[in-house]
Design a protein around this nucleic acid. Sequence first.
DNA 1: TATATTTGCAACCAAATAGTAGCAATTAGG
DNA 2: CCTAATTGCTACTATTTGGTTGCAAATATA
Lengths: 108, 108
Amino acid sequence: METRRDIFQAIADPTRRAIIGLIAITAMTPGDLASHFNTSRQAISKHIKVLVECEVVKQEVSGREIFYQLDINKMKEVDEWLEKYRCLWEKRFDQLENVLEKLKTKKK
Amino acid sequence: METRRDIFQAIADPTRRAIIGLIAITAMTPGDLASHFNTSRQAISKHIKVLVECEVVKQEVSGREIFYQLDINKMKEVDEWLEKYRCLWEKRFDQLENVLEKLKTKKK
DNA sequence: TATATTTGCAACCAAATAGTAGCAATTAGG
DNA sequence: CCTAATTGCTACTATTTGGTTGCAAATATA
């Protein structure tokens, strides 16, 4: 079993989603981030490490501090994946119609 | 640590995303689903169990067969979560300011 | 009825995950 | 300088995950 490092793994954890919500607004250090949670700094740092490996965050070093900020391109991947299904709850049946046509031709 | 059972956990696994892609088109049985993968039927059944626990699929029993189909409402939850970030990659930067303000005021 | 098919369940295993604690390296401030 | 602060790194632990195999129950089919 190989370790998955993609955006879907990144957002699977609620703490990481909260981190994403924070650094979407402004770049933050691990210490700053940790102060927003009840868990330890090390635990937050491990979540940040996962986010970095998933390429969801960009980092910028400033002295002994490291500022992490959201890389929005990865979020776009979720949106692109979701696009296939969006027609199923919206009123735009353009994609759904294609699927239904396929089903009609399959039925003998 | 309690086991998380939500849509984000459901879509974290690539096999489960593939299952979602299949049952979005039409309801399928575990056996039918398993024939689309290299892994065992039992492994697919376990993924289906997770999807059921995450309330991502609806099931309908017909004799000894069980048909599973996507419950699109749960997918909507991902879209709603993503909505907060969509402006960050779209060209509408005028709305970005509004969203950032909303995020700031929403914070405790 | 006898047999094959479909399925869920339980036990088990290896790997990944989420968390903790301790420590060393680097940097800021007195 | 000296000390405190910030951070990443390495164990270490407990739990979860994804997978396997075997088996029993229910249902279709000959």
